[in-house]
Amino acid sequence: MPVKHVNNVPVWQRREPLKQYAIWAGWMLGGMLFLLCWKVISDNTIWEFMNDAGTQAGSLIGRMIPPDWSITGSLMLPLWDTINIATVGTALGILIAFPLAFLAARNTTPHPALRAVALAIIVSSRSINALIWAMLLVTIVGPGIFAGMLAIALRSIGFVGKLLYEAIEEIHPTPVEALSSTGAARTQVLAYAVWPQIMPAFAGISVYRWDINIREATTLGLVGAGGIGLQMNAAINNLAWAQVATVFVLIFATVIVSEWVSAKVRHAVI
């Protein structure tokens, strides 16, 4: 216990002095970095806009309420598209991520070089937002649901792949040893000793990603990749804020339902 003597009276201290100074220095550096960053942002901001931010916000909210319920019927098809983008995209992503995870896990990879390639694919897919993938795909396959599905799939590969290969690396090794010692082939060991152990994690990860993908799919329309985002974009461009509010309410409801479904499924499999 660090003790400091002040006038020969021992005073308890929480930390060693050097460590305490280091922590203070760390806080100070962090604070300075924050101020520096704030200055950069402040320089790039037109503060005149800020003066009427309050009135802008007020008028925005005023124009959103009440929402324009008359368009609800016409939003049902885009909503269905959004759910399809998320679901099919998730399924496609899982289909690719599943084998990739086995290549990327240290204990199941056939070769270290393949492992490096799989890890590179996973990190690239994870680093890039679905919206960016969608922008790219719209220029490649044209606007529409298909681009959205591919974008969701490309983003999901990294997410599912990473969590799944971590689950594979955490399995108990003894059943694998036991089944190898029966003379079972590699594929049989994977099916009998590895798969049962990762199955709950796999189901949980998939449903979790589907839940996230529902949220992401609502925005893909902003760059032309289908779904309810298209209607939202059109309404925003027309400054029809009452319609935008309707879209928001629908998105909110869909997300709450999807969250409930995913929580139910995750409970069921664990």
Binding site: T174, P175, E177, A178, L179, Y192, A193, P196, Q197, M199, P200
Partner: peptide, 10 residues
């Protein structure tokens, strides 16, 4: 095996 090494979920 010492710790049985069963696949517990099967």
């Amino acid at each position: 095996f010492q710790n049985y090494a069963l696949v517990e979920r099967l």
